[in-house]
Nucleic acid binder design. Structure first.
Length: 804
RNA sequence: GGGCGCAUAGCUCAGCGGGAGAGCGCUCGCUUCACACGCGAGAGGUCCCUGGUUCGAUCCCAGGUGCGCCCACCA
């Protein structure tokens, strides 16, 4: 009935289907208490596919969820998708480009409709991939951030913020993506190193001779210069401050000003001030009351008179030619620096001044800062906790508007008189003058604005649903480092603002799984590994095991070895179960250990149970799987199974019954990590499902001292036998177990008695020397000294046993 | 530029004040009646460097070197 080699293929898919059909993935399945355990999956982009980060994330969450389900909690693991504003729009826009059209040609309504249509066909595939990992999400509760009910939540959030007076519109310099033609937040900007050229240009003084030399990588922006700034303490320019210089090409007279934000060490120490096209210059200009000139349009092309419609680099050339002609070009030098690019399309970011909607962060963030300081939410590892607090403390106001078409349109309407009405559902008339001619703001919200509501909008908020009552607040959020400020912090302050409570108590920041060579996993680099490929090779259980084993390191390299280790563990488990089940006869699982090795293994399993209960709340998954691995291989298979084999072969029903009981507990411990193989074995001798079986209770008092001593003697003897070829003299159970496990008559140890005696003599001498050292005996902790005495005794005894 | 972290066996990594460990790889021997995805035996290490604290340091502290990640408006 059971093959000698465990093949996860087919088995895993079968259980995934069975579990879901039997409703065991549903929230509350198997619950035996009213206590809840809730995790919301970080909603993947609706266009997304499973990558290694998702797989690790899923393995962690599922391990926690399955463990709590077995412990009787009412668990909810909430699945769903994010509409992912700019990311999704980007994909559809590229399709249109390939078809020779564009979203503008299509028009907004048709574009949005097309995006929906495309999603129906090809979107939302990733939950199917989570299924293949065995993730026990409640797939019947899938939510999407653009569901009608979810839209209500998003609009309500915005209106509440508006009512607080925290939403305002301001004309500021923002990161502008010329490809998508929208503002994006600082957090959506990547920095990429590029080779550039730094141009040094002379700006002559308007009165009298001389000039100031500035340095720039963007000569075209000279057309929008409104000042030259120097550091107030810079002796080189003390006399220049207050004078005027003439901007090249433009011929404009602009002041030389002093500002401490200028770095005297960079370039020439003199900065051309271009408030319209540089964030720092914008601030300096604002503080000095300078005008904002704009010479670049939303499409990235130049708009300055005489240069309309030209590419910036063409204007750069013209400006350079002008400088050369007028002998104002001092030099050009190669310069490597980081420039901002759009995280989606990698276009170079254009800092542009544009009207955007902002959300004030000062008051909104405060309760979240307090909650984190009071550890009402804890980030793991703790270094990330400090980072989260700092991020909230220094959070600038949140630019919530985007000039996109795919997303949640902002609920603000304008009447012909320019009054603003912010309301949801859509108002019939202007709140101020009653006009019914309302025009809705065309902008949509930042995609993270809706993500911030995920832990409760998925439960029906703003409606007071039973689910919301029952499952909010939740417990854990599992996510990647780079998303702390974008998402985790925002869920926390949104939850506190709207529901008065934090959405979860713990945030696990997972490590980033790197490629085998240590580089980042990336599709474009070809370094990515598809988790489904790993599952196809080694199975979902092994993939989960391997990922958890890697999870402790900060940036682990993906390692196929660890997956193979997991696969071997599954196979080992399968085979030792086969051994026990083959000899079970009519035995039923019965927890009535008699032989010392039975008491010993049950205690070892129970020790590991306690260890699991200590490690999982600390989210230490790597040590968890390591501990399980050694329990199975070293203790259960190498010692216990070998020790009872003679009795199993003799059809000893009591031995078989105890073995079944021990196997049950072992399977339960492994189930959260390796659900499929454990469920498959469980089904060989149960009608129930392991998945919803109770987590093992601590074992009642078993006098394990004699068992532990016998096993230790047998194990020590085995080590000596392997090294020396001489089996030390043993008595009673220790002797029996040693004989069953080590089989001296069969194993030809190629050891060397003399070498082993020498080794033991050396150990004895070392221990004796330490115990003779008064400073050690007095200075070291008593337990350490006692341990040393024990060792000395043991080495002496072992030495004697092999005739030393 | 700021923050966080890492340097231990050929590889990937545990350990972190008192005997240097695991998995894989390698060598040798076993198709032994659960498992060759196995069993047994072995080789392989100035625990990055320099100081300090300590009876004792791979482990704690300081400095150095080399990496990695996150964040950041040096034109």
């Amino acid at each position: 009935m059971m093959e000698p080699r465990y093949d996860p293929h087919g088995v895993e898919e079968r259980w995934q289907q069975t579990w879901e059909e039997e409703g065991l993935y549903r929230a509350g399945a198997g619950a035996r208490t009213s206590a809840t355990y809730v995790i919301c999956v970080p909603p993947p982009n609706v266009t997304g596919e499973l990558h290694m980060g998702h797989a690790l994330n899923g393995a962690i969450q599922d391990t926690l969820v399955r463990w709590h389900r077995m412990r009787g909690f009412d668990t909810l693991w909430q699945p769903g998708y994010d509409h992912a504003g700019i990311a999704t729009q980007n994909v559809v826009e590229r399709q249109l480009l390939a078809e020779g059209t564009s979203r503008r040609e299509l028009g907004r309504e048709a574009f949005v409709s097309r995006t929906w249509g495309w999603l129906e066909q090809t979107g939302r595939t990733i939950m199917g991939q989570f299924r293949r990992l065995g993730c026990s999400l409640d797939y019947s509760r899938e939510r999407f951030t653009m569901d009608d009910a979810y839209i209500d939540a998003v609009m309500t959030f915005f209106v509440r913020l508006w009512e607080q007076g925290w939403i305002y519109r301001a004309n500021r310099i923002v990161n502008w993506c010329p490809y998508h033609q929208t503002a994006i937040s600082d957090l959506e900007v990547d920095h990429e190193e590029v080779d550039d050229v730094l141009t040094h240009a002379r700006y002559p003084f308007a009165d009298g001779g001389g000039s100031i030399t500035i340095a720039t990588v963007r000569p075209a922006t000279m057309l929008a210069d409104v000042a030259v700034a120097v550091h107030p303490d810079d002796p080189r320019y003390r006399d220049a401050v207050g004078q005027e210089v003439v901007v090249p090409v433009a011929g404009r007279r602009v002041p030389v000003i002093a500002d401490a934000r200028v770095d005297p060490a960079f370039g020439t120490g003199a900065l051309k001030v271009t408030p319209g096209h540089d964030p720092l210059d914008f601030e300096i200009g604002r503080d000095h009351g300078l005008p904002v000139l704009t010479v670049i349009g939303p499409d990235g092309r130049v708009t300055a008179p005489g240069f309309e419609g030209l590419e910036q680099r063409d204007v750069d050339e013209r400006v350079l030619a002008w400088l050369k002609e007028h002998d104002q070009l001092e030099k050009r030098e190669n310069y490597r620096h980081a420039v901002g690019t759009c995280a989606r399309c990698h276009s170079r970011i254009e800092p542009l001044v544009s009207p955007q909607w902002w959300c004030r962060m000062d008051e909104l963030g405060l309760p979240a800062i307090e909650a984190l300081r009071a550890d009402r939410v804890r980030f793991h590892p703790s270094s990330q906790h400090r980072f989260a607090i700092e991020s909230l403390e220094t959070a600038p106001d949140w630019c919530v508007s985007r000039q996109l078409w795919w997303g949640h349109q902002i609920p603000i309407w304008t009447c012909p008189d320019g009054h603003l009405t912010c309301a949801w559902p859509p108002p019939a008339a202007c709140a101020e003058c009653g006009s019914s001619e309302l025009e809705r703001d065309p902008d949509v919200l930042d995609t993270w604005f809706s993500s911030a509501l995920w832990p409760f909008a998925t439960l029906g908020w703003p409606q007071q649903t039973p689910e919301l009552e029952r499952y909010y607040p939740g417990n854990v959020s599992v996510t990647a480092r780079e998303i702390i400020r974008l998402w985790e912090n925002r869920m926390i302050f949104a939850g506190l603002f709207l529901l008065g409570d934090v959405p979860f108590t713990d945030v696990i920041i997972t490590s980033t799984v790197m490629a085998v060579d240590g580089r980042r996993m990336s599709k474009s680099l070809g370094t990515g590994i598809d988790p489904l490929e790993a599952v196809a090779k080694h199975g979902a259980d092994a993939t989960r095991y391997g990922l958890l084993k890697m999870s402790s390191q900060q940036d682990p390299r993906f390692s196929w070895d660890k997956l193979e280790e997991g696969q071997k563990l599954a196979n080992k488990l399968w085979n030792v179960a086969r051994l026990i089940l083959q000899h079970r006869g009519g035995a039923k699982p019965e927890l009535a250990p008699q032989a010392l090795e039975e008491i010993w293994i049950l205690r070892r399993i129970d020790e590991t149970r306690a260890e699991v209960e200590e490690l999982l709340p600390r989210f230490d998954f790597a040590h968890l799987v390591e501990s399980l691995y050694h329990l199975v291989f070293d203790d259960f298979c190498d010692w216990y199974a070998e020790a009872i084999k003679p009795r199993l072969n003799a059809s000893d029903t009591a031995a078989a019954g105890t073995a079944l009981a021990a196997l049950e507990r072992l399977l339960a411990l492994l189930h959260p990590v390796m659900p499929h193989v454990t469920e498959e074995i469980w089904a060989q001798f149960h009608d129930s499902r392991l998945m919803v079986s109770p987590w093992p209770e601590p074992l009642a008092e078993l006098d394990g001292a004699a068992a532990a001593e016998a096993l230790r003697r047998a194990q020590d003897a085995a080590a000596i036998f392997r090294r020396s070829g001489v089996a030390p003299a043993l008595e009673g159970d220790a002797r029996r177990i040693f004989a069953a496990v080590v089989k001296p008559e069969r194993v030809k140890a190629n050891g060397d008695v003399e070498a082993e005696r020498a080794r033991l003599r050396q150990e004895v001498a070392r221990a004796e020397a330490m115990l003779a050292n008064e400073r050690f005996v007095q200075g070291a902790p008593a337990a350490v000294v006692a341990a040393e005495r024990d060792k000395l005794e043991r080495y002496r005894r072992e030495l004697e046993a092999i005739g030393g």
